[in-house]
Design a protein around this nucleic acid. Structure first.
Lengths: 330, 330
DNA sequence: TTGAAAGCGTTACCAC
DNA sequence: GTGGTAACGCTTTCAA
C-alpha cells in the first residue's frame, strides 16, 4: 500500500548528504555533546538543505513516548467547554505536549474512539458524561495515566472538579432572602455529576431553611433551545427557576423576560442578560487537569494515591434573581 | 531511556499465545479473508486475554499515515473558535481522523510548534493570524496537504473563508438608512484578513453612498476588555461605531449602553445584548475545512488546482444599531 | 568523536 | 492459509 511520504527527507538522506552516519545526525540534531562543532555544522547544513524534520513516528517509537495527551469531552457545544480546553491546551503546551481532542457526543461507539485515542497519547483526561466507569477502570488498569475532569471519581484515578453543593446552597439562601418561596430546578440530575451536585445543594439549602422542597423539572438538554422549550412547562406557580446551567436559564429568559431565574457557569452572555449565576473557573479546571496529567505521566512513583481537588465557585448576583438586590455586581 | 510501556501487550505476545506468527495475528485482527475461522478465533481469544491493542505508532509507521489531522488557531479565546473547532472535529471524526489542536497565541516560537504538529498529522488546517505565508508555503512544498481557514490565500493551497466585504456594505447601508452620518470603525485591519475585509467593505459602502469616510480607531485586541478600553477614546462625535467583532462591540456597550454600535460573529451574548451584528457560519467553516483537508489527503490526484470558497454571512439586525428598526430579529 | 547495529510495533510482500 | 522477513524512521547502546 503505497502512500504519500509522511515527511520529505529521512535521517538517512541527511546522513548521506553530510557524509556521516545516522547516529551522528541524530546526535547533532539533538544537541548532544558528543559531536564536533564542525560535524554538527555540516549536519545542520544538510538538514536545512533537505528541509529535514524528524519523523514523530520514528522518534516516538524509539523513545517510547508520544509527547502528546488527549482530552475527551461529552460535547463541545457552548462556551463552557471552549474555556476548559483553552486552559488545558495552554498548560499542556507549557510542558511541550501536543493535545488531541475527542468529543463523544454523537458517536455510536464512544468507547472505541476513546480506546483509539488512548493508543495515541501518553495520558488521557476524561470529562463528564463520556464513557463509563468500567472503561475508565480498564484504561487505568493498563497503566495509562489519567485524570478525570468534572466527573465522579473512579477508584485510583485523579479527579478535578468544581464545587457545586455549597454554592448551590448559597444561591438558594440568596433567593430566599429575596422573599421567593417556591422553587423549580430545571435540569437532569442524572445527566451529569455536576447537575446532580447542584440539585443536591438546592435541596439541602431549602431543607436547612425549613422551606418547601423545590419542584424538579427534569429535561435532558442543556442548551438554549431546551430552556425555551421548558419555559412553557413551568406554569405560573414557579417563583424562582434555578437552572442547571446558563444556557437553560437564557432560554427561559428568552421566553419569559421577567421570570426570576438563575443559571450556572457565568458565560459571557450571562453578563448581558443580567443573569444571576455561579461562576466556574473553567480555564483553571482545564489547566489543573493538564498539569495533573503531566505529573502522572512524568513522575517515577506512579503508585501515588489518587488525588482529588474541588475548585471553588462563586455566586454572581445580577438582576434576574429579583429586583432590589443590595449588591449587584457586573 | 526506559519508559513506561506505551501499551501492554505486543503483537508478538499475542502470536506466541495463539501459537501462530505475527503475520497471522495481524491478518486475523484486521479481518483478512486469508485466515481460517478457527485460527481467527484462537487469535482473537489470545488478544482479548492479553488486552491487546495494536500500537498506533507501529501501525502508522508501517502504513505510512497518521490517521490524524491538525488545526492551528491563533487563539481559543471566546466562542468563535469553539464553534469552528466543534464543526471541524465532528467532520473529522466522520471519516475516522483524530484531531490535534494547537494555539499559537502566546507561543514564543509558533513556527516550531506548527512544524512539530506537521510531523504528527496527515494534513493541517491553518487559521487566521498564526504563521506567515512563507511557513505555509514551505510546509505545502513538502507535500503536506493543507487548508487555510479565515486567512488570506497562499499560492497552491485551498482556502475557506467567510464573506466580509459585501455584508459590511449591507451593514453600512442599514446604518445609513437609520440616519447615521458619522462612522467609526473599531479594530485593526492589519490584524487579520477578516478585519481587513470588513474595513474595506465599510469604506466601500460609505463611498458608494457618497457619505463621509469612516474614522478608523485602530486597536489591537479583539476581546471585551479591548472594547471597554477603546470606548473612552471614541469621543462624542461618533454616531455609529462599527466594531471588528462582537466582543469589541460588547465591551463598548458595557461602557456606553446607549451607543449605536454593531459587531461581527453573532455570539450567543449578542442576542442578549441586543447587538446588531453579522452572523458567521462558524461550524460550517470548520466542517468545510475538515472535509477539504480530508479530500486532499485521500485523493490520488494531489496536483488538483487550489480551491477557494467563501461562505456567506448575514446581517442580523437587533436594537444596538438605533431605535425603530423596521425589522428586528431575535 | 564516530559508526554499526539492535531495537521500537506494526503491515505487507514473498515463499511455502 | 501461514510463516519469515523486510521495511517504516528514529534513538541508543556497544565497539572501535
Amino acid at each position: 500500500m503505497a502512500m504519500k511520504a509522511l515527511s520529505r527527507a529521512t535521517i538517512y538522506q541527511v546522513a548521506q548528504a553530510a557524509g556521516v552516519s545516522i547516529a551522528t545526525v541524530s546526535r547533532a540534531l539533538r544537541g548532544s555533546e558528543l559531536v564536533t562543532e564542525q560535524t554538527r555544522e555540516r549536519v545542520l547544513a544538510a538538514a536545512r538543505e533537505l528541509q529535514f524534520t524528524p519523523s514523530r513516528l520514528g522518534r516516538s517509537l524509539a523513545e517510547g513516548r508520544h509527547a502528546a495527551n488527549g482530552i475527551v469531552f461529552p460535547d463541545l457545544v457552548g462556551p463552557y467547554y471552549a474555556e476548559v480546553v483553552l486552559g488545558y491546551e495552554a498548560a499542556a503546551a507549557g510542558f511541550g505536549s501536543s493535545v488531541l481532542i475527542l468529543t463523544t457526543g454523537g458517536r455510536a461507539d464512544a468507547e472505541a474512539a476513546v480506546r483509539d485515542m488512548a493508543s495515541r497519547v501518553d495520558g488521557l483526561t476524561v470529562m463528564g458524561k463520556t464513557v463509563s466507569d468500567e472503561v475508565i477502570g480498564k484504561l487505568a488498569a493498563t497503566g495509562l495515566p489519567m485524570v478525570l475532569l468534572a466527573r465522579d471519581p473512579v477508584r485510583g484515578v485523579d479527579t478535578v472538579r468544581a464545587e457545586n453543593r455549597r454554592t448551590a446552597e448559597a444561591l438558594v439562601a440568596h433567593l430566599l432572602a429575596h422573599g421567593h418561596e417556591r422553587f423549580v430546578f430545571l435540569g437532569d440530575p442524572d445527566g451529569s455529576p455536576d447537575v446532580r451536585g447542584r440539585w443536591a445543594g438546592v435541596r439541602a439549602g431549602l431543607a436547612r431553611a425549613g422551606a418547601a422542597p423545590a419542584h424538579l423539572v427534569r429535561i435532558t438538554g442543556l442548551d438554549i433551545e431546551a430552556g425555551r422549550a421548558a419555559a412553557g412547562e413551568l406554569g405560573d406557580r414557579a417563583q424562582a427557576v434555578i437552572c442547571a446551567n446558563d444556557e437553560l436559564a437564557l432560554g427561559v429568559l428568552l421566553e419569559r423576560p421577567r421570570q426570576t431565574v438563575t443559571g450556572w457557569d457565568d458565560l459571557m452572555a450571562a453578563q448581558f442578560a443580567g443573569l444571576t449565576t455561579v461562576r466556574q473557573p473553567m480555564r483553571e479546571l482545564g489547566a489543573t487537569a493538564a498539569r495533573w496529567l503531566n505529573r502522572r505521566i512524568t513522575e517515577s512513583n506512579d503508585s501515588a494515591a489518587a488525588r482529588r481537588r474541588i475548585l471553588p465557585t462563586r455566586l454572581v448576583v445580577r438582576t434576574s434573581c429579583g429586583t432590589h438586590c443590595p449588591e449587584v455586581h457586573r
